[in-house]
Amino acid sequence: MTPHRFRDLLAAHGADLERWPPGERAAARELQAQQPAWLGPALLEAAALDQWLDQHVLPAPDRALLERVAAAAIPAAVVARPRSTWRGTGWLTPSWWPRFGLTLTGLAGALAGAFVVSVALRQAAPAGAVEWQARATAFGEIAADGSDE
Protein backbone atom coordinates (compact mmCIF):
# COMPACT_ATOMS: atom_id res chain seq x y z
CA MET A 1 0.00 0.00 0.00
CA THR A 2 1.31 3.42 -0.88
CA PRO A 3 1.34 6.21 1.68
CA HIS A 4 -1.04 8.10 -0.58
CA ARG A 5 -3.57 5.26 -0.54
CA PHE A 6 -3.22 4.90 3.22
CA ARG A 7 -3.95 8.59 3.70
CA ASP A 8 -7.00 8.38 1.45
CA LEU A 9 -8.42 5.48 3.42
CA LEU A 10 -7.60 7.15 6.71
CA ALA A 11 -9.37 10.30 5.60
CA ALA A 12 -12.47 8.33 4.61
CA HIS A 13 -12.72 5.67 7.31
CA GLY A 14 -10.92 6.99 10.36
CA ALA A 15 -8.20 5.50 12.53
CA ASP A 16 -9.83 2.17 13.37
CA LEU A 17 -8.71 -0.33 10.74
CA GLU A 18 -11.74 -2.50 11.53
CA ARG A 19 -13.80 0.13 9.76
CA TRP A 20 -11.63 -0.06 6.65
CA PRO A 21 -12.45 -2.26 3.65
CA PRO A 22 -11.45 -5.82 4.62
CA GLY A 23 -9.28 -6.21 1.52
CA GLU A 24 -7.12 -3.24 2.49
CA ARG A 25 -6.49 -4.00 6.15
CA ALA A 26 -3.53 -6.38 5.88
CA ALA A 27 -1.57 -4.01 3.67
CA ALA A 28 -2.44 -1.11 5.95
CA ARG A 29 -1.13 -3.02 8.97
CA GLU A 30 2.11 -3.74 7.14
CA LEU A 31 2.56 -0.08 6.41
CA GLN A 32 1.74 0.80 10.02
CA ALA A 33 4.39 -1.64 11.22
CA GLN A 34 7.03 0.32 9.33
CA GLN A 35 6.15 3.37 11.48
CA PRO A 36 6.81 6.11 8.94
CA ALA A 37 7.18 9.58 10.49
CA TRP A 38 4.02 11.01 8.93
CA LEU A 39 1.83 8.20 10.22
CA GLY A 40 1.60 9.10 13.92
CA PRO A 41 0.16 12.63 13.55
CA ALA A 42 -2.20 11.51 10.81
CA LEU A 43 -3.55 8.66 12.94
CA LEU A 44 -3.93 10.91 15.98
CA GLU A 45 -5.90 13.44 14.00
CA ALA A 46 -8.24 10.79 12.64
CA ALA A 47 -8.63 9.17 16.05
CA ALA A 48 -9.60 12.51 17.60
CA LEU A 49 -12.49 12.84 15.18
CA ASP A 50 -13.51 9.21 15.78
CA GLN A 51 -13.75 10.01 19.48
CA TRP A 52 -16.01 12.93 18.73
CA LEU A 53 -18.26 10.89 16.48
CA ASP A 54 -18.54 8.17 19.12
CA GLN A 55 -20.05 10.72 21.51
CA HIS A 56 -23.19 10.80 19.41
CA VAL A 57 -25.02 8.03 21.23
CA LEU A 58 -28.76 7.66 20.77
CA PRO A 59 -31.25 6.24 23.28
CA ALA A 60 -32.49 2.76 22.52
CA PRO A 61 -36.20 2.36 21.84
CA ASP A 62 -38.19 1.53 24.96
CA ARG A 63 -40.71 -1.26 25.26
CA ALA A 64 -43.66 1.03 24.56
CA LEU A 65 -42.16 2.07 21.24
CA LEU A 66 -41.32 -1.51 20.31
CA GLU A 67 -44.92 -2.51 20.95
CA ARG A 68 -46.34 0.49 19.13
CA VAL A 69 -44.26 -0.14 16.04
CA ALA A 70 -45.14 -3.83 15.97
CA ALA A 71 -48.82 -3.05 16.52
CA ALA A 72 -48.78 -0.61 13.62
CA ALA A 73 -47.14 -3.11 11.30
CA ILE A 74 -49.28 -6.16 12.05
CA PRO A 75 -52.86 -5.96 10.73
CA ALA A 76 -55.58 -6.20 13.38
CA ALA A 77 -57.01 -9.37 11.81
CA VAL A 78 -53.71 -11.16 12.41
CA VAL A 79 -53.31 -9.77 15.92
CA ALA A 80 -56.78 -11.13 16.80
CA ARG A 81 -55.51 -14.69 16.38
CA PRO A 82 -54.25 -16.46 19.51
CA ARG A 83 -50.56 -15.91 19.85
CA SER A 84 -47.77 -16.67 22.24
CA THR A 85 -45.92 -14.10 24.31
CA TRP A 86 -42.85 -12.10 23.30
CA ARG A 87 -39.82 -14.30 23.43
CA GLY A 88 -36.14 -13.95 22.75
CA THR A 89 -36.46 -10.20 22.66
CA GLY A 90 -36.16 -9.06 26.24
CA TRP A 91 -39.89 -8.38 26.38
CA LEU A 92 -40.63 -10.90 29.05
CA THR A 93 -44.10 -9.80 30.03
CA PRO A 94 -47.09 -11.18 28.10
CA SER A 95 -48.74 -8.47 26.07
CA TRP A 96 -52.16 -9.14 27.62
CA TRP A 97 -50.88 -8.37 31.11
CA PRO A 98 -51.58 -4.59 30.96
CA ARG A 99 -55.11 -5.23 29.68
CA PHE A 100 -55.70 -7.76 32.46
CA GLY A 101 -54.47 -5.20 34.98
CA LEU A 102 -56.79 -2.55 33.58
CA THR A 103 -59.74 -4.94 33.77
CA LEU A 104 -58.98 -5.75 37.40
CA THR A 105 -58.65 -2.07 38.23
CA GLY A 106 -61.99 -1.31 36.58
CA LEU A 107 -63.71 -4.15 38.42
CA ALA A 108 -62.31 -3.02 41.76
CA GLY A 109 -63.51 0.52 41.06
CA ALA A 110 -67.02 -0.69 40.22
CA LEU A 111 -67.25 -2.76 43.41
CA ALA A 112 -66.01 0.11 45.54
CA GLY A 113 -68.54 2.44 43.91
CA ALA A 114 -71.40 0.00 44.52
CA PHE A 115 -70.37 -0.35 48.16
CA VAL A 116 -70.29 3.42 48.71
CA VAL A 117 -73.72 3.85 47.08
CA SER A 118 -75.26 1.06 49.17
CA VAL A 119 -73.90 2.54 52.40
CA ALA A 120 -75.19 5.98 51.45
CA LEU A 121 -78.64 4.64 50.63
CA ARG A 122 -78.79 2.70 53.87
CA GLN A 123 -77.98 5.87 55.83
CA ALA A 124 -80.31 8.14 53.85
CA ALA A 125 -83.41 5.98 53.64
CA PRO A 126 -85.63 4.41 56.32
CA ALA A 127 -85.11 0.68 56.90
CA GLY A 128 -88.43 -0.19 55.31
CA ALA A 129 -87.62 1.55 52.08
CA VAL A 130 -84.25 -0.22 51.81
CA GLU A 131 -85.95 -3.52 52.47
CA TRP A 132 -88.37 -2.82 49.62
CA GLN A 133 -85.61 -1.82 47.22
CA ALA A 134 -83.64 -4.94 47.99
CA ARG A 135 -86.55 -7.12 46.88
CA ALA A 136 -87.56 -5.09 43.84
CA THR A 137 -86.47 -6.21 40.36
CA ALA A 138 -87.18 -5.07 36.85
CA PHE A 139 -89.93 -7.67 36.78
CA GLY A 140 -91.67 -6.48 39.95
CA GLU A 141 -91.32 -7.16 43.62
CA ILE A 142 -90.09 -10.56 44.75
CA ALA A 143 -91.84 -12.19 47.62
CA ALA A 144 -89.84 -12.73 50.80
CA ASP A 145 -89.81 -16.49 50.25
CA GLY A 146 -88.64 -16.09 46.64
CA SER A 147 -91.96 -17.31 45.13
CA ASP A 148 -93.79 -15.40 42.40
CA GLU A 149 -96.34 -14.25 44.89
Binding site: L66, V69, A70, A73, I74, V78, V79, R81, R83, S84, W86, G88, T89, G90, W91
Partner: peptide
Protein backbone atom coordinates in the same frame (compact mmCIF):
# COMPACT_ATOMS: atom_id res chain seq x y z
CA UNK B 1 -48.36 -13.50 7.97
CA UNK B 2 -46.50 -14.69 11.05
CA UNK B 3 -47.08 -11.94 13.61
CA UNK B 4 -44.51 -13.38 16.01
CA UNK B 5 -41.85 -13.09 13.31
CA UNK B 6 -42.79 -9.46 12.80
CA UNK B 7 -42.36 -8.75 16.49
CA UNK B 8 -38.96 -10.40 16.37
CA UNK B 9 -37.93 -8.32 13.38
CA UNK B 10 -39.01 -5.16 15.19
CA UNK B 11 -37.02 -6.19 18.27
Amino acid sequence: SDAEAMRELVA
